[in-house]
Design a protein around this nucleic acid. Structure first.
Lengths: 111, 111
DNA sequence: GCCACTACCTTGTGTCACAAGGTAGCTTGT
DNA sequence: ACAAGCTACCTTGTGACACAAGGTAGTGGC
């Protein structure tokens, strides 16, 4: 979640849809909204209401400095955990980069 | 867990200790024993009591054919998930193989 | 006999993902 | 105008799980 918000602010419904594009990360609103609430309570994200061009207003989430720190910590932990699991499983570490362009926070806005 | 049992049968306490050697996988008996119970209930592992050379008897766990299938399925899911997370995080996929010799099920017995 | 170590297991607590359901704004069709 | 449908938010209830803590018992050393 924090990584998706790293490049630019996004709103909840958008996050559900973006994650849903990859089957391995598919999740639901019942997961995302409580998660965003927790992140907000822990001051890792800030929120801001913005009008939608068409439809109800959207609640945008943006990383705080604390959120950036937490993300950096998590990145390190993830690499440690990932390599440990790969070690136990004996799974090769290839670079599957076919999907990153779709969902990675690329600061683009060509939607 | 299944991967650790792939090469040879192991007992619960041993698994806790082996996992504890890697900080990223450190866990406790309160986690491992219920997990092994679940795997047994789902017929992914079989058990067998064996005498210990010194100390109380040990309950050894061994993969069943179903367990092997489940492990194969998990390996695939793990690679998909791992690559998805790496894609979102933008973490490079290097081969950290420094630790695998310590814990990977290598069918060795030189302890 | 007592302590320490090995080795098993259970109970209680808190967290979390998810399905399901609820509210409300906006647009489109009739 | 009003219904239907989409967008977008959120809550409640359920079940799974990790973990800390505590409990039982066999073995060996002092």
């Amino acid at each position: 979640m924090l990584a998706l918000l790293e490049g630019e602010a996004r709103y909840g419904f958008e996050l559900v849809q973006r994650l849903g594009q990859n089957p391995a990360l598919l999740t639901s609103e019942g997961t995302i909204y409580p998660l965003l609430s927790r992140l907000h309570r822990e001051r890792l994200v800030e929120t801001e209401w913005r009008e939608s061009p068409a439809g109800p207003p959207r609640k945008y989430y943006r990383l705080t400095p604390r959120g950036r720190e937490a993300l950096a910590v998590f990145r390190q932990q993830w690499v440690g955990f990932r390599d440990a699991v790969d070690g136990v499983l004996g799974t090769p570490q290839n670079g599957g980069d076919t999907w990153s362009a779709t969902v990675k926070p690329t600061t683009e806005s060509g939607d």
